[in-house]
Computed example of a mutant assay.
Amino acid sequence: MISFVNDYSENAHPDILNALIETNLEGNVAYSGDEHTERAAKLIRKKIKKEDAEIQILMGGTQTNLIAACAFLRPHEAIIAVPTGHICIHETGAVESTGHKCIEVKGCAGKVTPQDIEEACGPQHWDHAGILCVKPRMVYISQTTEVGTVYTVNELRELRRICDKYNLLLYCDGARLASALDCSDVTLLEMAELCDAFYIGGTKNGALFGEALVIINDSLKNEFRYIAKQRGGMLAKGWLLGLQFEILMSNNLYERIGKHQNEMAKHLKKGLIELGIDFTVDSPSNQLFPILKNSVLDKLNEEFAYEIISIIDEQRTGIRLVTSWATKKCDVELFLKRLKEEIYHE
């Protein structure tokens, strides 16, 4: 079975597995006080050119978002996000379980817009509600978004401008940041310039597990690790996280993984377009959302795995195809070959 379900179905990039084997008998300091974690943090600071950035490597995306909300917000403060935002639909209400409400805004192509923030924070809201409602304090975005789109530098600058207007924090979920760095004009330097905090995703970018939270805003750094520990985020064997990011941040491996993911997705997308396939959203990243006939999918199910996203009508279904660091060109071509055969057989 060839899987296009997600970008974390395989264990880890060989460079990471080799490093884990080579360091297996090392004696490391616990709770991320080890040399691997320190070197990973230095490499990240060098890439973003922020020597004073606080780096904390955590286990997973949901945990990272939850801990960030707990650490950055006061009890009455809330987070602005689009309905497709990961914290709104795919984290079992983790953020809201901490008492911080998610304020859903309409968005556009999976992205928060300045107009969304104006509507959530402007006088048309506060003149009528005021302290009767939770207070918006943080804007949550994803790069790439959950529907595969990406923010441009200009869009991020506009979000920064409106966040500053309403004294909001700008926080970015970078679960698929490697793909975004390859297919958008936003670099790590601009992420660090425009966001108060963001994380560099590892789980979906070649690591066994791990997300590197980067805190830029000085006001958010104080006693962060106490909250991370309280919320179960401080792994005793923290060097396992640090070592993986030490490898990912070396020799442009992270960037090379993003490039490969996108090259495989481009090849897949080109073939789908040539077959006349429509998409629910136009994605430039490693997530594709084609619409296929149910009768065709029934046949593809015998060889390929994918995720069902939406029921278009009685005859068609919207699915998601995701490429990863491990996706082979021959697997993409086999999928396109089988799809072509089934379409023509129809």
Rank of each mutant, 00 (worst) to 15 (best):
I80H: 10
D185E: 05
E190D: 13
V134C: 11
K259Y: 06
G107C: 06
I311R: 15
G107N: 09
P136L: 03
A228K: 08
I277S: 05
I79G: 06
M59H: 08
A265F: 05
N294M: 05
F72D: 07
E22H: 02
V82H: 04
S295Y: 04
K135C: 03
A19N: 05
T144Q: 07
L288P: 13
E341H: 07
T323W: 01
H36T: 05
L177M: 15
G233M: 07
T62R: 06
T62D: 11
K101G: 01
R338Q: 13
G238R: 10
E146C: 09
T62S: 13
K204L: 09
N11I: 05
Q244L: 06
S310M: 11
S324F: 04
A129F: 13
F4V: 03
I16W: 02
A192H: 04
E10L: 01
N252F: 03
D15L: 04
E118Q: 14
D34R: 02
C133S: 08
G276C: 03
S3P: 11
C163R: 03
V112L: 08
E263W: 01
L292H: 11
W325C: 06
L159E: 10
V147E: 14
I57S: 08
G238W: 07
K47S: 11
I247N: 06
Q315I: 11
E333G: 00
L170A: 08
G85P: 06
L58F: 04
E35L: 02
K101L: 12
N222P: 00
D196R: 07
Y344M: 11
I162T: 15
I44H: 06
V332L: 03
R74P: 01
R160H: 08
C330V: 14
D185S: 06
D278Q: 09
V214D: 11
L336V: 07
E211N: 15
E255V: 02
G60K: 04
S250E: 15
S9A: 12
E333K: 11
L297N: 13
E302L: 10
